[in-house]
Design a protein around this nucleic acid. Structure first.
Lengths: 355, 355
DNA sequence: GTGAAAGCGCTAACAT
DNA sequence: ATGTTAGCGCTTTCAC
C-alpha cells in the first residue's frame, strides 16, 4: 500500500508538452483562464487531469513575489474566541486564494518573537497579531518585514500599524459601571496573574479598566484578585471565589475576566449552596457558548469575534490591493453588554428560600 | 508610520558580499554552523544581524525539495479536542523546524477535498487528516501526492495509510456497557444528524458502537437520538433531553456523543428540576475541561488528545527520516472511562426529594 | 573549510 | 492569444 519508489511529480513543463503548448499558456489557464482560447484551455485542462498535476505555489511565489500566505499569531488555539477569529479570517481570505499560517505563543512574548521570526521566513503578505505588546526585537523584525501588520482583539493606544478590535480597558469599565449601577459595593474580580513573560495583556487591561471605574466611584478595589497563570479558565474562577469569600464573606458581586472563570465561580457557588444571583451576582466576559447554557445564564460582555476576523480579512485584502486610503486603520467592532440571569439588583430576591 | 517605499529585502547574496564570503558559506552558517570556521561564522552572523536578513524558506524549499510544511485538516478549530491535537503536533514538529499548515472543513467532505487540493500546492511533507472518510477525488489526490498520510482521532478499518487514534466504535460500546452494568434499561443517547455532506463520522461511529452494545444486551435502542447538525454542542444536549423525555418520561440514563452535549443535558435538568444523578444519570465523551467543573462532575470517556498529537508528530519525524520500519503504522492511544458524579447505580438515592 | 555552477518550478515582461 | 527569455533566492553537487 505504501508508495514504492516515487516517480517524479509532474511539473508545468510536463503539462505543456502533453498539451502541446508553452508553459506560459498552462500558467494562464491556472491563474486566469479567460486569457486562453476555450479550445486550448480544454486541452490544457485535460493534460492537467491526466497527469494529476498540482501547481507548486512556492515556485510561483518565488517568481511573482506573492506567496498567498497570511500569518496569524494567537496566544492559544484552545480558546474559542481566538479560534473564532481564525475562522472568520479564513472565511474571507481563503476565497481570495490565501492560506493562513497560524502560530500560537502560550501567552509568552519570547515565544511570540520566535514565531514571528519563523513566520517571516515564509514571506507572508501580512501579519496578524493579538494585541500590541511585543519584545523590542519582535517589533523591529515586523517593521523591517515591510508588510501590513494588524493588531487584533485590542485597540492599543500606539498600535504597530493597523488595529481591529475593541477596548479591553473599556470592557472592564463597562463591567464595573454595570455592577455599580445595580447597587453593589462589595465587588470582587477574578483575573490571571503575570508570571515572567507569560502575560494575558488583554485580560489585564480589562482588570485595570475595572479597577479604574471602581476608583472613580470611590469603591474599594481590595477584592480585585489576580491569581493563577494564563490562560484563565474554570478553575481560576472556582479558586478565586474561595479566596474572595475568605477575604470578605459579605461579597455581593464578582466580575471574571473570562466567561470560563465566571462559570467556574457559578459552579463553585453550586457546590457551596450559594444561590446565583440571589446571594451573589456573577458577570463574565467573552460570551462563550457556555454562557448561554449555564444555569443561570451568564450576564456578560459580548464581542463578535467572527466579525472581527472577517473585518480583519477584508482590511488585509484592501491593503494588499492598494485599495486602502490614508494611514493606519483602526476598526472598533464594539462591545455589547448582555443581561442574562446571573446578576440581580442589590436586595432583589434576597428573601427567597433555596429552590 | 506606514512604510514609505520598500527598499528591497536583503538576500543571501547581500549577506555574502557584506561578510566577504560566498553565498554557500552563508547558507551553511544558517543550516549547519559547525561546518564553518568560527571566525568566518561570526562575520557572517554579524552581516546577517546588520542587514536584518531573514532566510526565504520558499526559495530554500524549491532547491532542497524540503518545504518544512506539515498539513493538518480538522473538522473545526473551535473544538477544544481538535485544537489540542494541533497543539500537541506543534510541540513536537516546530522544534524540528516544521510549520503546521492548518485547514478546517466544517465537517464537510467536499470542503475537505478543496482544502487538500489547496494544501498540496504548498508541497507539505506529510498530511494529517481527521478520520478516514474522504471523497474519491480526495483519496486519489492523496495517493498521487506520494507523502505520508496519517489519519488521526479514529482507528479506521481501512486507513489510507497510517493512523493514530482510538476506536470511536469501542468508545460507544464502553459507554453502553457501563450504563448497562449500572443496571439501567431505559437508556437514551444524543448525537448529531448527518446533513448532506456534513457528517460527524467519528461521532456517528460512537453512536453505532453504543447501539451495537445495547442490541447485544437485548436492550431497545429506540431512545438513540440523532438530531441537529454537527458540531454537536450544548444546545443539542438540551434539546435532545427534551425529546427523550417526551418519548419516555421514565428515562433512566443518557449518553451524549460529546461532553458539550452532556453538559447541555445537565443544564436542562437543572432548569427542569431533574436531579443528576438521582433522577437521571448522564455520561459524555471527550473529557473536555468543563466536564471536571460542572456540578455534578461528568462521568466521561477520556482521550489524551495532546498525546495523540505528539505521537503523530513523532511518527511523522520518524517517517521523514526513514526511521520507520515496516508498513503502515497504527497507534492506539486508548480510551479511559472516568467515573465522576453524574452516573449513579440504578435505584441509588431514588427516594430523596428534589433539593 | 570554502567556492562555482547549475537548477529547483514557476511567472513577469516583453515579444509576436 | 500565445510564446520566449530571464530570473525569483536558495541549496545541491562537485571542485578545490
Amino acid at each position: 500500500m505504501s508508495s514504492g519508489r516515487s516517480t517524479r511529480r509532474p511539473t508545468i513543463r510536463d503539462v505543456s508538452r502533453l498539451a502541446g503548448v508553452s508553459r506560459m499558456t498552462v500558467s494562464r489557464v491556472l491563474s486566469d483562464p479567460d486569457l486562453v482560447l476555450p479550445a486550448t484551455r480544454a486541452r490544457v485542462q485535460k493534460a492537467i487531469a491526466d497527469l494529476g498535476y498540482v501547481l507548486d505555489r512556492a515556485a510561483g511565489g518565488l517568481a511573482s513575489r506573492r506567496t498567498g500566505f497570511i500569518a496569524l499569531i494567537v496566544p492559544t488555539l484552545t480558546n474559542a474566541n481566538f479560534s473564532t477569529v481564525a475562522h472568520g479570517l479564513t472565511e474571507v481570505l481563503s476565497k481570495a486564494g490565501f492560506q493562513l499560517l497560524i502560530s500560537y505563543t502560550d501567552y509568552d512574548l519570547g515565544e511570540e518573537e520566535t514565531q514571528i521570526r519563523n513566520l517571516l521566513a515564509r514571506r507572508p503578505e501580512a501579519m496578524v497579531l493579538t494585541g500590541s505588546a511585543h519584545t523590542r526585537a519582535a517589533s523591529s523584525l515586523l517593521v523591517r518585514a515591510d508588510i501590513p501588520v494588524i493588531a487584533v482583539a485590542d485597540l492599543p493606544h500606539r498600535p504597530i500599524e493597523h488595529a481591529v478590535g475593541f477596548s479591553n480597558h473599556q470592557a472592564g469599565r463597562m463591567a464595573a459601571q454595570y455592577l455599580l449601577r445595580k447597587g453593589f459595593r462589595r465587588i470582587g474580580a477574578v483575573g490571571g496573574q503575570s508570571v515572567g513573560d507569560v502575560i494575558d495583556h488583554r485580560g489585564e487591561e480589562r482588570m485595570r479598566g475595572f479597577e479604574d471605574e471602581l476608583a472613580r466611584a470611590g469603591v474599594d478595589s481590595d477584592l480585585v484578585l489576580r491569581q493563577g497563570a494564563p490562560p484563565v479558565s474554570f478553575a481560576h474562577g472556582a479558586a478565586g471565589l474561595a479566596t474572595l469569600l475568605a477575604l470578605d464573606p459579605g461579597l455581593e458581586a464578582v466580575f471574571a475576566v473570562s466567561d470560563l472563570a465566571a462559570v467556574g465561580v457559578i459552579m463553585e457557588c453550586q457546590r457551596r449552596g450559594i444561590r446565583v444571583p440571589q446571594d451573589l451576582s456573577v458577570m463574565g466576559f467573552g460570551d462563550f457558548e457556555i454562557a448561554r447554557e449555564v444555569v443561570p445564564a451568564l450576564t456578560t460582555l459580548h464581542v463578535d469575534f467572527r466579525e472581527l476576523g472577517q473585518r480583519t480579512g477584508r482590511l488585509i485584502l484592501d491593503l494588499l490591493d492598494g485599495r486602502h486610503a490614508g494611514g493606519p486603520a483602526v476598526i472598533d467592532v464594539g462591545l455589547d453588554l448582555l443581561e442574562r440571569g446571573s446578576v440581580a439588583a442589590k436586595g432583589e430576591g434576597v428573601r427567597s428560600l433555596p429552590a
